[in-house]
Amino acid sequence: MTRSQPPSRDSAPPRRGARTHQITAEGRSRAWRRHHRQMALDSLGRLRRRPLSTLLTMLAIAIAMVLPATLWLALGSAQLLDANLDDSARMTLYLDQGLSESQAMAVAERARAEAGVAGTELITAAAGLAEFQQRLGMEDALAMIDDNPLPATVLVQPQSRDPQAAQALAERLGAIDGVEEARLDMAWLERLRQLGELGRRIVLVFGVLFGLGVLLVVGNTIRLAVESRREEIEVVTLIGATHAFVRRPFLYVGAWYGLGGGLLALALLTLGRGWLSAPINAIAQSFGSRFELPGIGPGGSLLLLLVSTLLGLIGAWLAVGRHLAEIRPR
């Protein structure tokens, strides 16, 4: 096919030599951006013309997003707990009852000098009692006891996290004069770590399952949209539309569904948090502590929107791709 000079802008009928259309690279990228803009708005318009079905689809996506997001948040708060636990990977040396403050300090010094110890903190019997009273609000009950029933304690921060090394260290520390007992609750720690791992895997499984759910919801909706515009797809394909061109409006529809579903999911999460926070605060207060339900935060919100939009996009891609494969020449 001959490619003659670029087409003139006049409105004359085709002249001899039947010119074909020629478009510069710059013009093509401008046209590409124009088409994207048009399709983004056009697809949004299509969704707005059918508000109920659009809302229902987005709601289905939102619900599918909320459960894994909630689990993820729950895991986040469990990890908060875990961070505190790292702190309590410390060992506690319970000193003999009746050691004087200077004797206790000497024991702490000796423990500090032991190999594999990163740091020590001495809590004298008096300080321990004071903290105990403050934490439990039991001043009255304890005031009735004459002698301080608490031993002085030394908190030891081991250098290594290795359970075996910690065990060996605990044995050596326990042998120091004036140390009644060196306690290291490894089994408990290990159990908690396993629970954390279990939680992570559960979130992963639910995340994948519900992510697939979003794909199916979007895919099926887009499949119906493709079906209703089958004629249009056929016509534009006949006159030379690329697959990308055919796909574009549907990808935008899918992305809008995903984004809308993500926003709804955020709204549901916020509502749910508000709904739960009052009783949880009340429970926490009754234990004399404060507990804040973890929010999703700006980073988490962004991630949620990104994931839901991406899922919408992929769902649409798969649905249109199936149809495009059907109409290729045989």
């Binding site: 087409p7 802008r9 259309h21 478009i23 013009g27 093509r28 401008r30 046209a31 590409w32 124009r34 088409h35 016509v235 534009v236 006159i239 030379g240 539309a241 690329t242 061109f245």
Partner: peptide, 13 residues
């Protein structure tokens, strides 16, 4: 206009 839109022709043209 469809074939021209598919080719990415400028709107005026």
């Amino acid at each position: 206009a469809l074939p021209l839109i598919i080719r990415g022709a400028a709107p005026q043209e």
